[in-house]
């Protein structure tokens, strides 16, 4: 009994402190992420390595005439199979990664908005893994690939119809440093 009273008093003191501190501390956390977000936007590093390795004046990864600039693989509803029309795209990235063993990609799975966030996160992951498996089959090392999922958090298209949903069921190929 006495112990629980002491605990209560301690908790009371902690919570009394809490009332003012979260407000004071929140901006500290707040300041971190936007800074990182803006610094990681730079694509300079990717373009530099492109110049070195291919001796071209344009980075193949960002050249709009190069298939490597295409980064999204779209999926059918509730499916995680890479459709034939995206094979050339994925194979081109596989070839690039094999030729550039220092290059790394993050495969980001996405879903449409239907269903719950955590389950969609898991569904999006399946799509990232499906693209990874194609890359692996072409000889890309696991060390060059990280698969993650945004679930329903990063739709390419707004709206609640099939036109939007079909843009949002996808896996994006993002090179490290981009």
């Amino acid at each position: 009994m006495n112990k629980s009273l002491v605990t209560s008093v301690l908790l009371a003191m902690m919570l009394a402190a809490c009332s003012s501190k979260p407000v004071k501390n929140a901006p500290v956390v707040e300041d971190k992420s936007p800074a990182q977000t803006t610094t990681s936007q730079s694509s300079d590093s990717a373009s530099t390595s492109g110049v070195q390795n291919s001796s071209m004046s344009v980075n193949p990864l960002t050249d709009p005439n190069n298939i490597l600039s295409k980064r999204s693989v779209y999926f059918d509803f509730d499916k995680d199979e890479v459709k034939p029309e995206y094979r050339d795209l994925v194979n081109a990235h596989a070839k690039y990664l094999v030729e550039h063993p220092d290059a790394k990609v993050i495969l980001q799975g996405n879903t449409d908005e239907r269903g719950t966030r955590e389950y969609n996160l898991a569904l999006g992951q399946r799509r990232a893994v499906a693209v990874k498996q194609v890359l692996n089959l072409q000889g890309v090392s696991d060390k060059q690939i990280e698969t993650i999922s945004y679930g329903e958090e990063k739709p390419q298209a707004a709206g609640s119809d099939e036109a939007a949903y079909s843009k949002n069921r996808r896996a994006d190929i993002v090179y490290q440093g981009e």
């Binding site: 902690m14 979260p22 407000v23 929140a26 936007p34 966030r117």
Partner: peptide, 20 residues
Amino acid sequence: QTVMSSNEPVISPRWSPDGT
């Protein structure tokens, strides 16, 4: 009261059993 904020998604908040 804002506990944290970010330009990137934040999901799945869960309270510790003691609420701290």
